[in-house]
């Protein structure tokens, strides 16, 4: 909980000194400045995810707006002990996209239409920051065998069910499931190795 000193601190130092959990508590109290601080920190991540999933800038904008409005209305449901704020807001964004896709029965363009060049710079091996680890995960995703990466991306970013993926890839359902497992296992293994090396 935030106490009076925290609130005074926010006024004096500005909201940039607050972490996401503290800002979310303020948003739950109806604090617009705290909300906009969170928006400024995460808008590019939210919009980036929506754009990757939908491939349409206008729809990505609508989804980003809906995601942030859910933050505004439901900030009190965020539990810092269950995970990072970034994961929470991006999970909301993904759900909004998937809901839209399934309601409209519209499948997005599979091809990416945005320039990912800057994101594809090799990660700095000396850095142990969280963002660097995520960036490494992006590389690992790209390095998965094509058929495993395709299944993971169609499922997670395009909202296709296992049967729809089987139809799309013309592979048996069992093969689709195995590819999903193999792909996620590789990502999981790399992810936990990254976590361990960061802890050392």
């Amino acid at each position: 909980m935030l106490d009076s000193d925290d609130i005074i601190s926010a006024i004096v130092k500005g909201y940039s000194s607050f972490d996401e959990a503290e800002l979310t508590l303020l948003v739950a109290e109806g604090d617009r400045q705290a909300f906009l601080t969170l928006y400024d920190r995460f808008a590019s991540r939210v919009y980036g995810l929506a754009l990757k999933m939908l491939g349409d800038p206008m729809l990505a904008e609508e989804v980003s707006q809906e995601s942030f409005m859910r933050l505004w209305h439901r900030a009190e449901t965020y539990r810092p002990d269950r995970g990072a704020f970034s994961t929470w807001i991006l999970t909301i964004t993904r759900r909004v996209v998937i809901d839209r896709l399934r309601k409209q029965s519209r499948q997005p363009e599979i091809a990416m239409s945005i320039d990912e060049h800057s994101w594809h710079e090799p990660p700095d091996p000396d850095s142990t920051s969280e963002s660097n680890r995520w960036r490494t995960l992006r590389f690992l995703l790209d390095e998965l065998p094509e058929e495993q990466r395709e299944v993971v991306e169609l499922a997670y970013f395009h909202g296709l069910s296992q049967r729809q993926i089987a139809e799309h890839t013309r592979a048996p359902l069992g093969t689709v499931k195995t590819r999903a497992r193999l792909g996620l296992e590789k990502l999981r293994q790399a992810w936990f190795e990254g976590s361990r090396s960061d802890d050392e």
Binding site: Y39, S44, Y47, G48, A60, L90, E116, R138, F157
Partner: peptide
Amino acid sequence: FKAAADGLLHSAPPVEPPARLRANI
């Protein structure tokens, strides 16, 4: 598996949204 799937959320490249999005919100 869930941890790896959560990681996928963060693998999308950040893209700056149009300024009007902030104004609309």
